[in-house]
Design a protein around this nucleic acid. Structure first.
Lengths: 113, 113
DNA sequence: TGCTCATATTCAAATATAATAATGTTAGCA
DNA sequence: TGCTAACATTATTATATTTGAATATGAGCA
């Protein structure tokens, strides 16, 4: 059984422009900190802070190569989630079949209580 | 072309336990405010506040039936996103097999910890 | 008309999050 | 041994989010 609250925690962590960009890159492959520093244009400490958050929640992990830290994805939810974020959607969902599209009109469905 | 920042805004809005639960219900079908009030156990004004946020970002909409407001999903991203949130994942992603994407150094080195 | 139900809005206080600046750590190398 | 590159951590300040309390709106009905 999955924990909704756990999933929401992860969502919350991911819901930041810098962190989404980091994860989009990591879906493609391994990257080290200075790669990110160049690619995003934010300070090194700030990159580290974002990576630290993602690590703390088990979303990413890293290999050590000398002085480099090579980050990669760990949480299997991420590729799917980034997939949805990158997907194009054409139009709004159709309003439920039984019901009028606009805010006017009556609700023919049954209201259960 | 999709706007990353736009998607992140939506993610941010969704990343809240109450709002995820609201959306999980709306994926199943139409619901009015008092249905939510009962199902989540939070105050009516708080339900309204969450619905208001979701409306403001074009995620949901409603139609009026007398004194009721019947809410439904509008943003086509939501069913996919909720699908990912509800999906079960068994294990961590495998560590990347080879080949540096990083510009510096050799990869892989030693896995940390 | 006045009342009630269903829902919305506003305000303020508590709490959480983000960016910057300053400093710390560790590995490799001269 | 001392220096530097690569990265991490901490502290501070600014800003955003969340909730509860109080109040507002508007439809239907006696």
């Amino acid at each position: 059984m999955i924990s909704i609250d756990g999933r929401v925690e992860v969502l919350k962590i991911i819901a930041h422009p810098v962190r989404v960009k980091i994860l989009q890159e990591l879906v493609k492959g391994v990257k080290c900190v200075s790669d990110f520093e160049e690619f995003l244009s934010i300070s090194q400490p700030n990159v580290s802070q974002h990576l630290s958050l993602l690590r703390r929640y088990g979303i990413i992990d890293y290999f050590v190569d000398g002085r480099l830290r090579c980050y990669f994805l760990k949480d299997p939810l991420i590729p799917d989630l980034i997939g949805v974020i990158n997907r194009e959607y054409e139009k709004e969902l159709p309003a439920p079949a039984c019901c009028p599209v606009t805010k006017k009109g009556t609700y023919p469905g049954n209201r259960h209580r």
